[in-house]
Write a protein that binds this DNA or RNA. Structure first.
Lengths: 231, 231
DNA sequence: TGCTCTATATATAACAC
DNA sequence: TGTGTTATATATAGAGC
């Protein structure tokens, strides 16, 4: 009569399984009851018994109805969200990891862009392997960076001086764009090779870059998308 | 460091309660998991946690969805029927007891009636305390008794001889009613005091007693209610 | 707060009836 | 099958960190 060390696997023997089932069910219900009393919470358990003819057995106390009612009230989706099941836990973890990864990749890309930009600014543009960096993306990044830079600068001086929205006109702030840098740093040929600046209509440009260039060269209107990379 | 003997009552101290909650929740989930593996069953538990911001936590494995789905499929009524909660157990017990009591009271009343009837039949009617027994009820009972008696007698002789329903006419069986007994046993005065026989129309009589008296005196049609006391 | 540790309370496997 | 008994495995209160 020496107790075994619990081999956690299905008990093949029918009568032994039933005996174990009854004992453990009793213990389980007791535990649930204790937990609910000790901690003043609502809890219930549903156990499908293969022995007891009625397909399911219940948990603990009269509050079952409340618990079940509450549980039923939640939509299935919400239940799944809130259930800390092993599966959903793992799923959540995967989602988190993917999200994290995306963030870091984006961050990485930005750092690369920034470095490239500063290399251009410091006159070391000829050392840049532009095959590694998408030229269009780089232009976009530089424009965005300068826009934010100017935005913040002007904001700190006089907030009201800047006008947002599509209707802002002559009062909008002058800011350099990637064009200036390309013109300044690269030979004309290189600039001409970039189709983004030469052949896009204003509408296309706006679509591509998220803000419009006004009729007067070198003026721009910060569009509604300007805040998207605000930190 | 000596473990106390578990005082099963709400733990007032917040941090201690939380610690206990977490420990016991873990143990509970483990137990449910063990039970489901050892006995090859589906089980789940719902615990409403006051600590964990998400209002409920759950038990063990991916089968929760199945368990919950099954559980939800059952109507609420069916669930309650099958739940062996303490409360519903007691409620069922109460219902049973009340039902039993009603049965016995009915049985008692019938025995009293029967006794009274036989006292009348044996000519000891003058000893009856008719204040204890509702005169109307007694008439009803006697009629019913006789009806059944004749019904069974004729049934055993020739079942087809009896015609049920409202349309049965001349073929219906002749049977004595309580009127005969009252007329035979009591002085006219007593019989006259019973308003049920003298002053009710046929329709009213039918409404009152559940069957009709046909135009010819002493003939009756067993109505649809005749089977109601059949044993 | 949340973890580990350890003595003890509890749960329960195996056995007997 | 259900119940009771006992030796042992497991759960956990209380303490420290």
């Amino acid at each position: 009569m020496t107790r075994k060390k619990l081999n956690l696997s299905y008990i093949a023997n029918d009568s032994m399984r039933k005996a174990t089932f009854n004992k453990r069910k009793k213990g389980l219900v007791k535990k649930i009851h204790e937990l609910s009393v000790l901690c003043g919470i609502e809890a219930c358990a549903v156990i499908y018994s293969p022995f007891n003819s009625n397909p399911e057995v219940w948990p603990s106390n009269p509050e079952v109805k409340n618990v079940v009612a509450k549980f039923e009230m939640l939509t299935k989706l919400e239940q799944e969200k809130k259930m800390v099941s092993h599966e959903s836990f793992i799923r959540q973890n995967i989602s988190k990891t993917i999200e994290n990864n995306k963030k870091k990749m984006k961050d990485n890309a930005e750092r690369t862009m920034k470095e490239a930009m500063f290399q251009l600014l410091s006159g070391k543009g000829e050392k840049l392997k532009l095959t590694d960096i998408n030229r269009e993306d780089l232009c976009k990044y530089i424009d965005q960076y300068l826009k934010e830079l100017y935005h913040h600068k002007n904001k700190s001086i006089n907030q009201s001086y800047i006008q947002y929205g599509e209707s802002s006109e002559a009062t909008s702030i002058m800011a350099p764009t990637s064009m200036n840098y390309y013109q300044a740093i690269n030979p004309v040929g290189v600039y001409d090779q970039n189709p983004n600046f030469n052949h896009l209509s204003h509408n296309q440009y706006q679509q591509q870059f998220g803000y419009s260039i006004v009729a007067q060269d070198k003026f721009y209107n910060p569009g509604q998308n300007q805040e998207q990379h605000e930190e």
